[in-house]
Every structure is written in C-alpha cells, then in structure tokens.
C-alpha cells in the first residue's frame, strides 16, 4: 500500500507515495480515516513528496480528509507536492480549500 504514517513530534505525517488515482483512493481513504480517528496528534500532514501521479480523484480524497480531520478537531495540512501534482491541485482550486506547509525533515 502506498501509505506510510509516522508520528513526528506533534504531527501525524502521512506519506502518500505512488499513484494517487481513483483506484488507490479507495484504500487510502479507509486507512487515513482510521489513522485520523485514532491519533493524539495536534496536526495531520499529508506529505505528497512521493506522489508521482494524481488526477481529480486526489482532490476529492484530500478535501474529504480535511473534513474528517476538522470533525475530529485537528487541522490538516498538505506538504511537498511535486510541481506537477501542485499544478493539478491548483487547477481544482486547491489554494482556496487547502493549507500548504513546508515541512522540516525530522
């Protein structure tokens, strides 16, 4: 599965690697929701540095997790998308709905 989750200080960092298409969102959605529901972290960070491909399904997945995290009282941030992935998220109006952060390597 293209997902690795680490607690780094106060952050729950979720590394989404590989191809973020509709097929992969089906399992990612479940695993991310489980991790968010069970975390003690203060922030959720979706690290997209290893995401090699994405399409419109990615935006649905990310915005859905923003809502799930918000309902759990935790803010969600997106970090390190490639220029290509960022371009697609921006096309979908991401800067209006998402908060991007620079993450320091732990």
């Amino acid at each position: 599965m293209p997902l690795k989750i680490e607690k780094q200080r106060e952050d729950l960092v979720c590394f989404i690697t590989g191809e973020l298409d509709h097929h992969n969102t089906l399992t990612l959605r479940r695993e991310l929701d489980f991790a968010i529901a069970n975390t003690t972290a203060c922030r959720v960070v979706l690290d997209l540095s290893g995401t090699e491909f994405c399409d419109s399904s990615a935006l649905g997945l990310i915005l859905g997790r923003v809502r799930v995290a918000k309902a759990a009282g935790i803010p969600l941030f997106v970090s390190s998308p490639s220029a290509r992935v960022r371009k697609i998220l921006d096309l979908c109006g991401a800067e209006k709905f998402l908060r991007f952060i620079e993450r320091e390597e732990a």
Binding site: G60, L61, G64
Partner: peptide, 17 residues
C-alpha cells in the same frame, strides 16, 4: 465543479482537467 456524485467525494473537475 459540476458533479452528480458528491456522495463519493467527487469535485466535478475531471472534464476541466
């Protein structure tokens, strides 16, 4: 942003892309 499938977290951006 037109979609008939909000229930499955779709955003309606496929054709625009």
């Amino acid at each position: 942003f037109f979609t008939t499938d909000r229930a499955h977290e779709r955003g309606g951006m496929g054709f625009s892309i």
